[in-house]
């Protein structure tokens, strides 16, 4: 009998292990947003996720001596941890909506479906050989998984806040990916990305407000007029 012998996986360095654990935290908060019943807790989770991404950027900057990343971490801290959540929370306060029943599926089924999506992302990225000087490769797979789960967040939740948060957190997933494979991206390009995100946030905010004023709800189930 020649069975395959099970070999213990290599032990990552403390640096790699911490970085991966942070990336896992990004993915887990994505799952949290997917299932969170309250819009407000979704926004808080997004803020937390952004904080983790910011921390990851600062961590890479410190460990790999990429000073430009400090600037990015700073912008990210202001924009994604503070400003964006504040904008959305303000909208929620003005709308005076506490709970939007918007789960299209049961929570357990949603989580299992998202798990399948995450596994798909991890396997696709895992099948490629990525070498990175800034972060361990597994973080890229986790980022891809977070991106796919953010898609499910947009698809499976039918309220404007979930969908907007889904888009913002998609950007967080891409940020993690860019920390892995594109930590050296020129600063001007990164700043352009942030500016763009800010513009998108403003437009999302305007449209969310318009939607609420028009329909008196944050749910998107009323958006079914256009077909064919």
């Amino acid at each position: 009998m020649h069975g395959a012998t099970l070999v213990a996986t290599a032990v990552p360095s403390p640096y790699a292990a911490t970085a991966d654990a942070l990336a896992v935290l990004v993915l887990l908060s994505e799952f949290g947003m997917l299932r969170a019943p309250l819009s407000r807790s979704q926004v808080r989770l997004y803020s937390f996720q952004s904080l983790v991404v910011t921390g990851l950027a600062a961590f890479v900057a410190a460990d790999r001596h990429i000073p430009g990343l400090y600037a990015i971490a700073g912008i990210s801290l202001v924009l994604k941890v503070v400003v964006i959540p504040a904008i959305v929370l303000r909208l929620l306060r003005d709308a005076r909506v506490e709970l939007v029943p918007s789960h299209r599926l049961g929570v357990a089924s949603m989580v299992l479906l998202a798990l399948v999506a995450a596994a798909f992302g991890i396997f696709v990225i895992g099948s490629m050989s990525v070498r990175s000087r800034s972060l361990p490769a597994p973080a890229l797979g986790l980022a891809a998984a977070a991106i796919l789960v953010s898609f499910l967040l947009v698809i499976l939740r039918s309220d404007v806040v979930s969908q907007a948060i889904g888009f913002f957190s998609l950007e967080n997933g891409v940020s993690v990916a860019s920390l892995v494979v594109a930590a050296g991206l020129p600063l001007i390009v990164e700043v352009a990305f942030f500016f763009d995100l800010l513009v998108a946030v403003v437009v999302f905010g305007v449209l969310m407000r318009v939607h609420h004023e028009r329909t008196r709800t944050l749910s998107t189930t009323v958006l079914d007029r256009l077909r064919g």
Partner: peptide
Amino acid sequence: TEAAWKYVLIASMGLGIALFATIV
């Protein structure tokens, strides 16, 4: 309003993928 919301959401999600492509 409905068309605009669908448009900005779907197109932004798509461009999120495109941003990932840029990174790759």
